[in-house]
């Protein structure tokens, strides 16, 4: 199938991208790696008048160490994320979840920022970003602002990015010492979206869990933080993980579709959270 016609702007800088978007407002779409957008264009499920290609903006590429945080350029590809040593060392959960995204060819084109800005609750990275308290640096006509992950994911395929704004980079707090992590993705075949995914990072101290961060994939219209489990896990030992994870489906409203009805997804969330936490904690 074949995309409808559109005009094309290749932005050389963030400012150029922002002004191109401002000019066309809601008729424009940002093109990052294109791995979500181009299939939508081909199926004619999206009809932008203008496509603003931000893929070559140098500032938006690469991963750098910023002390307490790693800063990941929005146009950093999945393949670069997976192989980046800094990221593996300080935010390994991101690299591990990214390995489960699509397939190698798609990961060569698809970008970290593009996945997050697309905000598909079935995508793997939003839940990870949420669990890790990532911060989103967004550029607009009035300059740049930083939005917390909790505020970034607004609804299904909807984020805090305004039509004339661009996601420039994502700041992720480094996990300090003593953390373990695990991404559990439950899917039908290798290429499929997650029916449910659980991103867990756990810090142990003195033989019990001191702190846990858990994000859920595809359990609602946005990624969801399993806060009830996080609180229940604090201070628990190996024997209490299962009971704490029974709260994993609290506050979720997963879809019922051909993948599974909501009650099955909630059941999976409990089982997979227990497994992710157990693995992350090294129990």
């Amino acid at each position: 199938m074949i995309p409808a016609q559109f005009d094309y702007v290749r932005a050389g800088s963030v400012d150029e991208a922002v002004s191109a978007l401002a000019e066309h407002d809601e008729d424009a779409k940002v093109l990052a790696g294109g791995q979500s957008l181009i299939p939508l264009l081909r199926l004619r499920l999206a009809y932008p008048e203008v496509v603003v290609d931000v893929g070559r903006i140098a500032e938006m590429h690469g991963i750098r160490d910023d002390g307490s945080h790693l800063v990941i350029g929005a146009m950093t590809t999945h393949a670069e994320v997976i192989t980046n040593e800094l990221l593996r060392r300080h935010c390994g959960l991101i690299a591990e979840a990214t390995e489960t995204v699509a397939d190698p060819a798609v990961r060569h084109r698809g970008t970290f920022g593009g996945s997050l800005a697309h905000a598909d609750p079935a995508g793997d990275l939003p839940a990870v970003a949420l669990a890790l308290d990532a911060e989103f640096v967004i550029a607009g006509a009035g300059g740049r602002r930083t939005v917390s992950a909790a505020d970034f994911f607004v609804d299904y395929l909807q984020t805090a990015i305004e039509p004339a704004e661009v996601l420039v980079e994502v700041r992720v707090p480094k996990l300090g010492d003593g953390w373990g992590y695990r991404y559990e993705k439950f899917q039908r075949v290798a290429q499929a979206w997650a029916i449910v995914g659980v991103a867990a990072a756990v810090r142990r101290s003195n033989g019990s869990i001191a702190e846990a961060r858990i994000g859920l994939t595809n359990m609602g219209s946005t990624p969801i933080r399993a806060s009830a489990v996080e609180s229940a896990l604090a201070g628990t030992g190996a024997g209490e993980v299962a009971a704490a994870c029974e709260a994993a489906a609290e506050g979720t409203s997963p879809p019922s579709d051909l993948n599974g009805k909501a009650d099955y997804r909630q059941h999976l969330a409990r089982v997979l959270t227990r497994r992710a936490v157990t693995a992350a904690a090294g129990y």
């Binding site: 290749r10 093109l31 181009i38 299939p39 081909r42 290609d53 060819a105 798609v106 060569h108 084109r109």
Partner: peptide
């Protein structure tokens, strides 16, 4: 494309 596998149906020629 530049040494990496890509799906040519999901890349625009302009990219």
């Amino acid at each position: 494309l530049d040494g990496n596998s890509v799906k040519a149906c999901s890349v625009l020629a302009v990219q």
